[in-house]
Design a protein around this nucleic acid. Sequence first.
DNA 1: TGCCTGGCGACAATCGGTTGCAGCGGTGCC
DNA 2: GGCACCGCTGCAACCGATTGTCGCCAGGCA
Lengths: 373, 373
Amino acid sequence: MRLRRDIEGGGKEAGVARTTTDGDGTGIAMGGSTANATLKEVARLAGVHPGTASRALNAETRELVNDDTARRVLDAARTIGYSANPIARGLKTNRSHTIGTLIPDLTNPLFPPVVRGIQDRLEEAAYTPLIANTDNDPERERISVDALRARRVDGFLAATARSDGDILTELAGLGVPVVLINRQLRGGALRSVAPDDRAGIHLAVAHLVELGHLRIAHLAGPRSLSTGAARYDGFVEAMRDAGLEPDPDLILVGNAMTEAEGRRLCAELLDGDVAPPTAIVAANDLVALGCYDVLDERGLRCPQDVSVVGFNDMRFADRFEPPLTTIRIPHYEMGVRAAELLLELLRDPAAPVRHELLEPSLVVRKSTAPPAG
Amino acid sequence: MRLRRDIEGGGKEAGVARTTTDGDGTGIAMGGSTANATLKEVARLAGVHPGTASRALNAETRELVNDDTARRVLDAARTIGYSANPIARGLKTNRSHTIGTLIPDLTNPLFPPVVRGIQDRLEEAAYTPLIANTDNDPERERISVDALRARRVDGFLAATARSDGDILTELAGLGVPVVLINRQLRGGALRSVAPDDRAGIHLAVAHLVELGHLRIAHLAGPRSLSTGAARYDGFVEAMRDAGLEPDPDLILVGNAMTEAEGRRLCAELLDGDVAPPTAIVAANDLVALGCYDVLDERGLRCPQDVSVVGFNDMRFADRFEPPLTTIRIPHYEMGVRAAELLLELLRDPAAPVRHELLEPSLVVRKSTAPPAG
DNA sequence: TGCCTGGCGACAATCGGTTGCAGCGGTGCC
DNA sequence: GGCACCGCTGCAACCGATTGTCGCCAGGCA
């Protein structure tokens, strides 16, 4: 990291001309921003005991206090811009109104929309996500979970994709509310919201078959990622449904769902001594991009020589060269629904275990075409 | 949002074959995860008063207690897997170890790397970012700030881009630690880390001039965004430096830095009755993409007919058609540095005001070429 | 021997809320 | 007229840490 300049000081024009910084006339704003009023002060102003003020301020317990008194307290609170200190509240109630949110990597284009959905929905309910990146590393995941628990999060939302027995199961066993995103666990013990991977792959395969492809390859993600396994299984199933026997030589399993792995797998596929496929179903869009690179290197054109279909319809999938045919997943909604499930679970810890599957759809662009010849 | 299936229950295979879920042998792990030990328990186990235990556990105050006693306390803490309740601690210390992080929109590809940098650096210091999206809406920003303050964040990191007198100045005036990201404020009263926008635009213009372009257009962002203003100014300056008088007809200012605005501006530019430019400097990569669309529509080829250069080098900029020539900004480092500045400020509230400028670099790809003819 | 000093650790107040419990006055019923 | 009950509110005990203050005890010195 190089820094070009580094200016010290900067207060020579101190006083900075406080030109009517009164915001855009929200009125209460100034009051709200000055902050740090305490319950005791509100109580004194309203002429009641802090306990009473607390009840009046709390929607749940407001019925316990006289309407008149309540109004007085509310007024007092408003005039001094009171807002309850969640730290103090949390100490007593043992709830932080905070949700541990585990994702592999925020930088993966798949997750920002999911997280945004989570944030938006949680915000409505006055909860705040605490986001941790695990980089798909079980060790980091464990550390993050511990850190988050130390912060007393009220529950977990996990978009981290490992499918083997893990910390989250353990957590749920301890009574911690957990909702899985983008994956399910074998046995289905944990609530989840995920895309219907098998259905998505069916769409992809059906599309290729309809175009006339017979030799269709699948570059799969690792089976340790539940999406990797589900898409793999979906592929085999879909091929059979189409009356094609999947060729083991055309199914390669990678160690991750990244461009680099896509490149590696695709190269391996084309270097094999079997005849190359006319179409590739990639585990996701990133893997598909890896295919683009290798095809390019080998002088093969997409889609004329080889068709490619991705998975996720991540941002900019329509802008690649060629625009990528892929399976669209409603990522934002996935985040929203997961947040809702968790909220439900927080409200009622005995809520039934549910698994929501989001319907995928096929987006046909320019990376698929009938096979040559 | 449509749900395809919705399976209730799911525990038919209950018992889920607890196959050695002992993690990967971290040892302490299990202890750490069971959690919820309190200071009082540690103290009892170590045979000391909770107050003493507190001092022993705290590196700052450990010297106040006998080495022997301290060791006993530490051991006790370790064996019952104690981890301090930050809520309780925060109540007394009035610090939440939490940082309000304002960004316009997580979904904008510019921000994930910045946020990741923030998270990583803050995590090392045991701070946690609380992320809020403002959508560049002052109203939303105010609400977010209030919510964050209600949660008693210890400081703010703001990558939200407005340049007019705003809440953050107000906040800083109240003594709240604030560090700006990706922008500076007029007067420079607030600490900041930002790319050197002017230098970046200079790079872009110089590159085009070197290729032989004379009629260079700029599609600018709104002046209310500090990056918009800085790049605009940089453009005018760079043109003059190159001995070219910037043509007002070729400088258009948009209302946002998005693909849609890029399209609008580019269309307007080409529809004007002045001769079209041979090159366009876009306010950022998204605006450049908007240009791609319009050029495409008009049957103009990039770069043969019109060169385009973006700004940011956001993810996938190398994969567009054509691969985009752009100015690279070290986004991740920007997040890291901002976090560091804030940490410094938290440690020493009297730390000098600093403005760090990150050095941009030119990335030449396929969207620029010498002008035709 | 007596006093002072200093190291160490116990005590208790406190942070800012929430909540079980009890007390208060008034009303209705027997 | 007495009692039970009810609606409301005050009281005080928490929640789990931190921290100012004070007392205890040992050791050093006169």
